[in-house]
Design a protein around this nucleic acid. Sequence first.
RNA 1: GGGCCGGUAGCUCAGUGGUAGAGCAGGGGUCUUUUAAACCCUUGGUCGCGGGUUCGAACCCCGCCCGGCUCACCA
Length: 601
Amino acid sequence: MPWPPRSIACDSPKSSARSPATTPSSWPSPTRRGSAPYGHASRQSRRATRRIPTGARIRTMYWADELAARVSGPQVVNDSKTPSGTVHVGSLRGPVIHDAITRALRARGIPVEFRYGVEDLDAMDAQALLTPDAVERYMGVPLSRVPAPEGSDAPNYARHFVGTLFFPTFARLGIRPEFYWLSEIYPTGKMDPFIRTALDKAQLIRDLYVRVSNVERPSGWLPIQVICEACGRIGTTLADDWDGSTVHYRCLPDYVTWAKGCGHEGRIAPFGGAAKMPFNVEWAAKWSLMGITIEGCGKDLATKGGSRDRSEAISREIFDREPPINVMYEFLNVGGKKMSTSKGRGAAAHAVAASIPGDVLRFLFLRPRPNQAIDFDPAGTDAIPRLHDEYDRISAATAGATVRGELPADHDRLHFYSQVADGSAEAAKVTAAAWRPAFGQLALLLQLPGVDATARAAAEKGTPLTAPEQAELTERVDAVTHWLADYAPDEAKIAVRDELPVDLVAQLSGEERAWLLNLADRVDAARAAGTPLETGEAWQGLIFSAAKEGGLQPVRAFASLYAAFLGRTNGPRAGWLLAALAPSFITERLRSAAAVAGVAA
RNA sequence: GGGCCGGUAGCUCAGUGGUAGAGCAGGGGUCUUUUAAACCCUUGGUCGCGGGUUCGAACCCCGCCCGGCUCACCA
């Protein structure tokens, strides 16, 4: 990965110190018109938003377009991730949101860079993910220096979880930022000017922590985390003296509870990768270094007096630069609860991305406004089918069809940003008009043996599928298969009961039971006459002629079949279902169902 | 304790000043090939509570109640 990209001007603290006040247009800087309508805007600033003349119109725009309309000049969008372990689906919200912002800017003709950073110099603090002996050895060590789990080809822990598992899902979702790793940036020396400034202004930073967040640092605390020369840990060291070229530090056994320092004490020049700035200082330094103008963050960081506030204050007061525009985004919860890999709640990002089509997964994150929590509970629910249905509905509306129900503001923009393919709005409209099978119907279909999904789809559509439609069908078949295997509730699963579902069958009318008996006789007769009964068509014909003969409405006939075989009142095409069963089993089941004493007259 | 989000039909949710909506579920009906089908009709709501602004409030303002997440140690 080339660094730095030529197009990005790297502001050193020195140059940025004189530029913002005097020549604000000489660098990419967030240009604000009014206050943010999202993020942690205060009530007062919301009032201000409503007062601007275009307010009423702006508020009907899709949120990403709204943001893009507020800025001018080249923009740098940034997002980042600390790779402390398995990344769950919720972590995809940031990348998807930043990607949508990037596309919204580009759609308005605004030059934009999209970067994604990995904080792989941060200390390992996720004990649960290490083997017991590794805990003692690696807790507190920079993630880029912790070995990858057993069996991984990745060079280290961070590369394994983020590089080989998380990033590939980016590609699947059409998200293509320029990736960078902090473990590669520090050694280049690009961070050194910021480190020097931070150390020179250590007292100001300590004061700022108290003022903004009410956080008191130990006396002599310096905004630098040295990598211990003896044990390699970064989470356990405390630096307490800066002489203008080196810092004195100690690696303390009890500085943090989750890792034990080795006791080493020394003095080192904290440059070129020997040390890193603490998170908040580093964040602000990155904004300056890369000229970042837009960067959202999760609500955990965006709380008042929290991490984001500290970094913004540091950016303004230490590095003398206006911080980027923030877009605070809420989390994705599972069943109203926070995702927790350790508690088995919430699946890994790469697993979910593999089982839900990219367009639909993007749609999940882009449908609600960023500051709205998403509740996504796929296990044992119809959440995934409903998500597909809603995607189909918005697609249909985008294609110009009239749909039921209310539509969100600018639904065609929502559809546009949901596309994995990063194409034009016109191309997205063409995609929207494509034929796609309803998730639920596909779920029934795929539970029948020997079904050709493509043929069935073409039959339903009326004409052969186009190549894109075939591709989407394949993707959706895959999604349905995953859903049935991992998430679908039992009601959605079609299974022939081993035992006769007596309760349901008892509710059939005498007429219906008589019909079942008649069908059994006809099956025997057909077999005796040598009539072939291998195909679904043949069985379907037999069912209908038997129903006609008995004077029974077909819908009742089918319902009683479903009751007898599946224990439910509906199901897949009955002829094809029976064709998959042994004829002797069928006649036996029909007769035993007919023999049940009914509760209905 | 601070912050953010939410509370609208049985369920899931849309709807940011102009007669309360959709899907599913429930009830009824149509269809001689049925697909968690389709189509038609239908039941169901003090829009969390109380004030205020307005000719008019689910929507704006103030104050509460409830739920969730989050921060206050680290990132």
